[in-house]
Every structure is written in structure tokens, then in C-alpha cells.
Design a protein around this nucleic acid. Structure first.
Length: 443
DNA sequence: TCTGGGGTCCTAGGACCC
DNA sequence: TCTGGGGTCCTAGGACCC
């Protein structure tokens, strides 16, 4: 337990502090609009990695009835019929704009928790201003400095802040900021009664119908349920949500610097893959990328999993999905060993005649490289500067790729043609991260 | 009919999040 | 014809131990 913690019914919880959740409106779409202002006011969506489905929609696109995750082929007629604009996801751009946005928000308080590419929690205790005014200053600065419109929700817990943010987004009269901590009890109850239980953070599409069957239909109903009963009927996780809705902090988001516990690289293919050799190329590529991300967080992997599958959407094909895990002993961060292990795993699960649509490699049992671990019965010597250090080769490859661009140096096994790879067709330039793609501004 | 009583560790799968 | 890619935590059940 740290400072500021208290014991609550035998459970350590944080004492309540007002916390704000700031997030970008239709974040990916807003990033695109920064560099193409002509898109402002038009219905716009950003498509998933495979140009497969909509993963971000502007208000105008939502008004056309486009759902989150809706397949592109179902809505592409709107391009012609309703002036819809669809762009391929430009994650390089979004990540860079996210960094800038988060840095600005961080100027408004020392205790910021970046939760996703477009969301961060910021503790706002000790602010002398009215919190709504403070949040409006934050929105104004983010909008002016990076061009991203945002909304802010403020509550006594993360779950309340999420609820407030949801309300701020949905109801224009809040003007983008909703502060639950400033509301009288009665007004808070009225507001929570109007929020569907399915919109509560932590209640997904499985739990919401089960809750409604029990007569728990709104956020208020859930807040008024007995946590013990909820824990029994559902889970301790949902019971925490109940307590959080009531204003008792129960969720610990952990440190932003904590390394990932698993690293996955997977892709749907641009076309059907039948051939084992081609599948092996893709697996090698995924393993190489996963290994790179592994080294970036200074970890080793103690195990690896490979999975392959056909499309779950093709009804005339029997569903096929196969996966296998193998141990990496000793744990490694060497691309060559990881690729070799992944190829070996593939040989164990490959089946001829399947029309493969997707594959992936997952690394887990991760441990820090900063803790030296030798194999108990192995002949390993500690890796010192004797010129044969495998880590040195990996560092050199990573450094070359960092300097000259991803894929400059890679293992031959990943293939050069990569016909399985999907080529995005509607990709905007890397406006902010590539000298050759900087937008030209004429005075 | 009756068939111990704890523990721990691991894994697969389910729920959620963005 | 065409349907994303990451992550987290928790639970239940089996293997195994004494």
C-alpha cells in the first residue's frame, strides 16, 4: 500500500481524488482532418488494417448509420450516395499526434495516466480553479496546438470519469466537459438513470443483457446493486465497477512504464494463402516484428505461440483454427531463435488444403534482460564482449532499422515479395514523421 | 450407501478494453 | 468477392503434491 491508500472492507483502495478523462473525438478521423481541413464537416471513416472495416467514424458518418467495426463492403456505396470519405489507417500519423496531445495534457497536472492512443486520465486534485473551467482550458490548448477536438469527464473514480466523458460527448449542452464531482446527489442520480448500463465502462455486450434481465438497466441501477450480490452472480470485476460507480476507487491501472506481459503480431492476409512456404514467410515476418518489439522493452520471451486460421466468415468452409505453443529455453530475445521456433511450431499445425486467412505469433512468459538468467544445465557462458555476443547483432540490426527505416535489414526468411500482405489503398502521407512527406505550405 | 482434505501451479477460455 | 490488431484480468478445472 502506498501513501493515500486506506483499508476498505479488507481491500486496499486508493482514497478518492477527482480524476479527469480526456480523449480525442473520433480520434483517427480528427488526425486526418488536421492535414486535410476540407474533410471537416464531411462524413469520414478510417478503415482497419486490411481496409476491412470502419474503426473510427466522425459524427457525420455515424449519422449515416455506420456502425463501429462495420465491414467496408457493406457501406462502400455511401461513397457515391452520400459523399462518404474512407481512408486507410495511418497509425504512424496517429501515434505521433497522440504523443503531442499527451504531452500537452501532461502540462495540466503531474499525475497523468495514458490509457490508450487517444485517452488519458489526469488527477485534478489541488486545482484552485473551477474544474470545468480548467478542463475547458485543456481542451482549448489541445485544439489550438495540435488541432484535435476533445471531451473531458471528471469523477471521483476512473469509472465515474469514463461515465462523465460519455455524457460530455453525447449531450451537446455540456459543451464538451462534464464534472460529476460538482453535481448535487439528486442531479447525479438523474444523470446516471439516463445512461444505459451497456455504456458503463466494464459492461460489455455479454454482461449488459444479463444485467437487464435482472432489472438492472441503467448506470444508476448498477450503482445501487449490492456489490456482494454482483460478485456472486457475475464476478469480482463487475463488483468493482459497482463500487467505482458509487465513488470508491477500486481499479489500479498500474504504471505506464510497466513492460507488456505478452507481445502479439498478427495480420489478416490480403488474399487467401494456401501454400505452406508462403505461410512460413508470413510467420517469419510476424516473429521478426514481435522479437523487435520484445527487445524494445528489454525483455526475453520464455515461450511462443503460433496460430493459423481460415476465415470465420466463409460459410462454405469448415472453420479451421490451430495453435501451438513451445517453450524457448533459455528465454531469448534473438530474432533468429524466435523465427526458427515459430517455423518449427508452424510445421506441427499446418494442414494442407485450408484456405488460410490469418496467422499470428505471440510471445509470452516475458522476463527482463536486466536480470541475467542462465540455463541450469546448459553450457551457457555469460555474454560478455568477446565479439560473439548475439545481442550485439540484434542491437546493430535494430539500430540500422531505426535509422534507415523499418525493414532495411531483415532475415531472408520473411520473403521479399510478400504477396500475402495487404496493401492499403487509401493511405494518407506520414505528414509529421517523414521528411519526404511533410506537407508543403505555400505562403 | 459410504469413496479425504487441503494446497499449488498451469492452462484454456471468457469477459472486458481501445 | 469483401469482415482489425492489439492488450488486460479473472475463473474453472485438471494435474499433482502431501
Amino acid at each position: 500500500m502506498g501513501r493515500g491508500d486506506v483499508l476498505h472492507q479488507g481491500v486496499a483502495v486508493k482514497t478518492s481524488r477527482p480524476v479527469a478523462l480526456i480523449d480525442g473525438n473520433s480520434f483517427y478521423c480528427s488526425c486526418e482532418r488536421v492535414f486535410r481541413p476540407a474533410l471537416v464537416g464531411r462524413p469520414l471513416i478510417v478503415l482497419s488494417n486490411n481496409d476491412g472495416c470502419a474503426i473510427a467514424r466522425t459524427a457525420e458518418a455515424k449519422a449515416l448509420g455506420i456502425k463501429m467495426g462495420q465491414p467496408w463492403f457493406e457501406i462502400r456505396h455511401l461513397e457515391r450516395d452520400a459523399g462518404l470519405v474512407a481512408l486507410s489507417a495511418n497509425f504512424e500519423l496517429y501515434a505521433d499526434i497522440s504523443d503531442r496531445m499527451m504531452a500537452i495534457i501532461g502540462q495540466f497536472g503531474p499525475d497523468q495516466h495514458i490509457y490508450s492512443i487517444d485517452e488519458s486520465f489526469l488527477f485534478v486534485d489541488g486545482i484552485r480553479d473551477n474544474l470545468t473551467d480548467y478542463a475547458q482550458q485543456m481542451r482549448a490548448r489541445v485544439l489550438q496546438w495540435v488541432g484535435i477536438p476533445t471531451c473531458v469527464g471528471i469523477g471521483s473514480t476512473y469509472t465515474q470519469a469514463k461515465l462523465a466523458n460519455h455524457v460530455a460527448k453525447k449531450r451537446p449542452h455540456w459543451n464538451g466537459v462534464c464534472d460529476l464531482t460538482a453535481m448535487p446527489r439528486g442531479a447525479l442520480a438523474t444523470l446516471m438513470r439516463e445512461v444505459d448500463v451497456g455504456n458503463v465502462w466494464g459492461v460489455g455486450p455479454r454482461l449488459a443483457p444479463r444485467l437487464r434481465e435482472l432489472g438492472i438497466a441503467s448506470a444508476l441501477d448498477l450503482a445501487r446493486a449490492a456489490p456482494e450480490a454482483i460478485a456472486g452472480e457475475f464476478s469480482v470485476v463487475l463488483a468493482r465497477t459497482v463500487r467505482e460507480l458509487r465513488g470508491t476507487p477500486c481499479i489500479d491501472l498500474g504504471a505506464d512504464t510497466a513492460p507488456r506481459k505478452q507481445i502479439m503480431t498478427s495480420r489478416s492476409f490480403g488474399r487467401v494463402v494456401l501454400d505452406q512456404a508462403e505461410l512460413a514467410e508470413a510467420i517469419a515476418e510476424f516473429a521478426e516484428r514481435a522479437a523487435h518489439r520484445l527487445r524494445a522493452q528489454r525483455s526475453r520471451a520464455g515461450a511462443l505461440q503460433v496460430f493459423i486460421r481460415n476465415s470465420p466468415f466463409r460459410e462454405r468452409e469448415a472453420p479451421f483454427s490451430a495453435a501451438t505453443s513451445i517453450r524457448l529455453t533459455p528465454a531469448t530475445q534473438d530474432t533468429r531463435q524466435i523465427v526458427q521456433a515459430a517455423r518449427y511450431a508452424l510445421r506441427g499445425i499446418f494442414r494442407q488444403g485450408v484456405r488460410y486467412a490469418k496467422a499470428g505469433v505471440m510471445l509470452f512468459d516475458l522476463s527482463s534482460v536486466d536480470v541475467e538468467q542462465l540455463e541450469l544445465f546448459g553450457a551457457d557462458e555469460p555474454m560478455t564482449g568477446n565479439g560473439r555476443d548475439p545481442q550485439a547483432l540484434m542491437q546493430t540490426i535494430d539500430a540500422l532499422n531505426a535509422r534507415f527505416g523499418r525493414g532495411t535489414v531483415k532475415l531472408a526468411g520473411a520473403g521479399l515479395a510478400q504477396e500475402w500482405r495487404h496493401r492499403p489503398e487509401r493511405l494518407t502521407p506520414a505528414y509529421t514523421t517523414d521528411w519526404n512527406q511533410l506537407p508543403i505550405v505555400r505562403a
